[in-house]
Design a protein around this nucleic acid. Sequence first.
DNA 1: TCATAAAGTTAGCGTCTCTAACATATGTTA
DNA 2: TAACATATGTTAGAGACGCTAACTTTATGA
Lengths: 195, 195
Amino acid sequence: MSKKAYHHGDLRAALIEATRQLVEEKGPDSFSVSEACRRAGVSTAAPYKHFKDKTEMLVATVLEGMDRHRDKMLAALEGVPEGSPDRITAIGMEYIAFALNEPGIFRLKFGGFTDRIADPRLEEGGQQSFAILLAEVAKCLGEPGITDEVRRRGFLLWSFVHGLSFILHDKGLADKGGEFDLRTLLEDVSERMLR
Amino acid sequence: MSKKAYHHGDLRAALIEATRQLVEEKGPDSFSVSEACRRAGVSTAAPYKHFKDKTEMLVATVLEGMDRHRDKMLAALEGVPEGSPDRITAIGMEYIAFALNEPGIFRLKFGGFTDRIADPRLEEGGQQSFAILLAEVAKCLGEPGITDEVRRRGFLLWSFVHGLSFILHDKGLADKGGEFDLRTLLEDVSERMLR
DNA sequence: TCATAAAGTTAGCGTCTCTAACATATGTTA
DNA sequence: TAACATATGTTAGAGACGCTAACTTTATGA
């Protein structure tokens, strides 16, 4: 790494990181490519050697976040006994933790920004996370595999945790949610849904 | 109304309607004030006599949508017997119907666009809708009023329906949800949550 | 009636996305 | 190693957008 190289080294990764930071700081809607360039120390035309357009830059950033998200959910399962409903709760807690810790990325992914993109990699990532949940639901229900009933229950659980994540973002509603203990809520719902 | 009046008549309402249409057509993120002006047939400076800035224009449009939303939820309750859990289902169905019929407005409200606005009218509108649900939950549970337990159950139900609405937006996931009958899902969840 | 306020207009600044044309580094191959 | 091709940067600029300032036209009411 020379002190002032013409070439950056790994501008693509640097831009993704700058994008991630800015999306958290300013919010997904007021993110600008120019500002990411300033932060990465390159001209405003540089990104277009790595990304087709602004949207593709955001998608790449979301994908990177989803990878981290999935890894964390898997890590949260370690040490929790197989077949225990606690594993469902652990996944839910991690899901919500990500939504609260990285609200910008979360909204970028699910808030409708990348709606009309239909990037297959985005959907694939979501399916992978959903599959982790379904596997646990199957074990808890004692089902042999991913049956219709497993998908149904998983879908219900996911809807709940997903909605809860969104609601907890909103300040005024976070107050409402703040009345309750998160883990207790999740355990309650898991128990009701898996019964 | 003269054929070519210098003054519009009710530009504010016309801009809100144009905004509503464009948000549905192009999505909340690619909405532009300029285009709304073109559609309303005025210059691009005209809106600033009625709205402080672009955000206030979007907030006004969201507020108008929330009013319609609340009216529809109340209308959905008519004819359904008091104290019946069907009333909970009816509210949920209407909530989801609005989310699916007006996805642009729904995402504008809940997707994080108006996040840092903290307009008290926005929060008030949300509270009013939530209160409708809570009243029904109280009756179903046979509770005397809005007790802690009522708020807790209502919060769970709302989280679920809210998350379901978001998930049903996503094409790839709508397929997943499409496996199931919506009303049956809602009845199932209501029953589990109110038990 | 006529001053004033309300509600339009045009002109223009600064910012943003993205493209075109050019410059510089890297790597492959004769 | 020389030379060419490719990858990755740059500057310049077009066109859209948000918003403001200054001006014009209509409506209001003392």
